[in-house]
Nucleic acid binder design. Structure first.
Lengths: 252, 252
DNA sequence: ACCAATTTGTCCGTATGTATG
DNA sequence: TCATACATACGGACAAATTGG
């Protein structure tokens, strides 16, 4: 009996709000709506799609989340270029939920960080270097404040990423970067004695970039990463336990 | 006058539907709602948040898109683990919209692919190797069909990623992997003479993995990547033009 | 296999605050 | 300043699907 019914494919009646979202998305990806273009008012979309206002709104929410459309200050809806950070946040959450281990994070950083410094060797502008110099300076100043150091360390690595001027690499690095940030904070807070070595490494990496000294850069990124792993192990954690998310405690 | 008013921070009145989404999201990320758990019915959420059902529904759409919650076959809403592919698709779209260049993609692959093979050296199981062997075999069989080869090449690299058993690396690789797939398809279709070299490289990489021969693996990934770049250049394209999305023509 | 309750998807109308001209 | 347009939010309604007796 059931065998006969299975001769037909399951009919997937998709909700109207999904279809609305998909229709708009396709128009954007096909290039018929470019970043900055207005998507139209809700009432217009209601007329065009022939569905209710609520349905249109639900469809818009789907797109809004992926960053494909965004609200202008005027609240009008326009096509946007999805920003990395938003996407990376989603990915990082996925990784946390999957309970990825420090070991996985370690091996990935081992590939990405040296690659980033290497790319920055070629592409870093004077402005990039200046920003890094400011960051290193700041870090030196707050060296007694572990939380601040952790914060600035994360920024340092983010600036390196920016200095690569490679958007693909930047996006690949971002999710693991957010986990690295969490982990580094935990390491530094549980044992601040590694801070001088961290600062020294940043200094040397910056110097290497300034002199376009590829060898030196590679060497110090290597040391920096090894210190990071050693710090993690010294904090008594196991390499194969899931990485935790260190949330900065802020208001709200 | 305006100076006085600026003594207060801008009050950011966030829409209710965003707050709904955030509240649920936080509960999930805090671990108080685990994957598989029911989120509750819309009416329940209406009662708990004290907002209208439309508002709740809009909030749900936000979460739904990010993959944090999903509808079961019964249409009930439950907590889900965001799947890579979904997220990677979003990211890839972002990269396309940003018009990233082949050069950026190239330098990123240059870091990620060798790292993946290296990790696979340590972590590939017999099953992983068997899957790769099947893939290489298939590729040999369809060597006269460029489109099929491109398809199987993409699968080969995906299998390598799987064999690393490193979820962080896997996620980092995925977005660029999708762009690589597009580009490879274009290269192969415009000039199929490179196919034998591609197959040979796959064979050698597989062999290296089987023998856990790290050196050989590195060597052949290197050659494979260089061939890829050479193929791109030979196709007459410029390294600094934006990567195009090669859409497989399918129904709908 | 049938029925009653629940739930989702969709629609309608309306009120309110805000941005724009 | 005023009027208009728009996004946000609310209340109520109904059909179809699903669940649980």
């Amino acid at each position: 009996m059931t065998q006969i019914t299975t001769r037909f494919e399951r009919i997937k009646a998709r909700p109207a709000y999904e279809l609305v979202a998909e229709a708009i998305e396709k128009k954007i990806l096909a290039g018929r709506l470019k970043p900055g273009d207005p998507v139209g008012t809700e009432s217009e979309l209601v007329r065009q799609f022939g569905v209710n206002r609520s349905t249109v709104r639900e469809g818009i929410r789907l797109l809004e989340q992926s960053g494909l459309v965004a609200r202008e200050p005027s609240r009008r809806l326009s096509v946007a270029v999805p920003h990395y950070h938003r996407l990376a946040t989603r990915m990082t959450r996925a990784l946390i939920l999957q309970q990825v281990t420090f070991r996985e994070l370690w091996h990935t950083s081992r590939a990405l960080e040296p690659a980033a410094v290497d790319q920055a060797m070629d592409n870093a502008t004077e402005e990039d270097l200046a920003e890094l110099a400011v960051n290193v300076d700041e870090t030196r100043k707050v060296r007694r404040d572990p939380a601040a150091v952790a914060e600035l360390d994360a920024e340092f690595h983010k600036l390196i990423g920016k200095a690569t001027h490679n958007r693909v690499l930047l996006l690949a690095k971002e999710p693991s970067g957010m986990l690295v940030r969490s982990t580094t904070a935990l390491i530094i807070l549980s044992n601040p004695t590694g801070i001088p070595r961290l600062i020294a490494a940043h200094e040397h990496i910056l110097e290497a970039l300034q002199r376009r000294d590829r060898e030196k850069g590679r060497l110090w990124v290597d040391r920096h990463l090894r210190d990071w792993k050693a710090g993690f192990e010294r904090s008594g954690r196991d390499l194969d336990t899931p990485v935790e998310l260190y949330e900065r405690t802020r208001g709200e």
